[in-house]
Computed example of a mutant assay.
Amino acid sequence: MEGNEDLKKLIKLTGERAKLDARANGTYVVYRDITGKLVKEYSDGIKEVLPEKNQEYV
């Protein structure tokens, strides 16, 4: 069970690092939220839920 918690922590840290890199470079990150929707989050904090048609490929 400890390995599972380590993996969750690593995934969280990777996502946080991606957001920091996006802010530093003025870009965005794309991720799935807890409901399963794809979200594009810009470096200024604005979030855009991507249309359903784009979500079947990821």
Rank of each mutant, 00 (worst) to 15 (best):
Y57I: 10
A18Y: 07
Q55M: 15
D44I: 02
V39K: 04
K9I: 01
N4W: 00
G45V: 02
I34F: 08
L38N: 06
T14Y: 04
G36L: 01
K8T: 00
P51W: 01
E16W: 07
Y28A: 11
L38V: 02
L50W: 03
K19H: 09
V29F: 00
S43V: 04
G36H: 05
E56V: 12
A18W: 08
K40D: 04
A24L: 12
R17L: 15
L50R: 10
Q55P: 05
Y28Q: 08
D21S: 05
K19Q: 11
E16Y: 04
G26W: 09
N25F: 05
K12C: 05
Y31Q: 05
Y31D: 06
I34W: 09
G15N: 11
R17A: 12
G3S: 09
V30A: 03
G26Q: 13
L50M: 11
T14R: 14
K12M: 03
E2Y: 03
K8V: 01
A22V: 00
N54K: 11
L50G: 10
R23M: 09
E5Q: 10
T27Q: 02
A22T: 00
L50N: 06
G26F: 10
L50T: 04
E52W: 06
V39H: 04
K19R: 14
K8L: 11
T35Q: 11
L13I: 02
A22Y: 02
N4D: 15
E5M: 03
D21F: 09
T14L: 07
Y42I: 02
S43Y: 08
K12D: 12
R23Q: 11
I46G: 07
M1T: 03
Q55K: 08
N4S: 13
V29Y: 08
K47L: 04
L10S: 10
P51E: 07
R32T: 05
R32Q: 14
E2N: 09
G15Q: 10
D6R: 10
K12V: 01
L10N: 05
L38E: 02
D44T: 04
L13H: 10
A22D: 02
V29I: 15
T14Q: 15
E41H: 01
L13Q: 15
K12R: 13
T27I: 05
Y57C: 07
V39S: 04
V29A: 03
V30K: 06
G3T: 01
I11S: 00
I34Y: 10
N54C: 06
V49D: 06
D6E: 15
L13D: 14
T35A: 15
N54F: 13
Y31P: 05
Y57W: 13
M1L: 07
S43K: 07
A22M: 04
R23T: 02
E52Q: 12
R32L: 13
V39M: 09
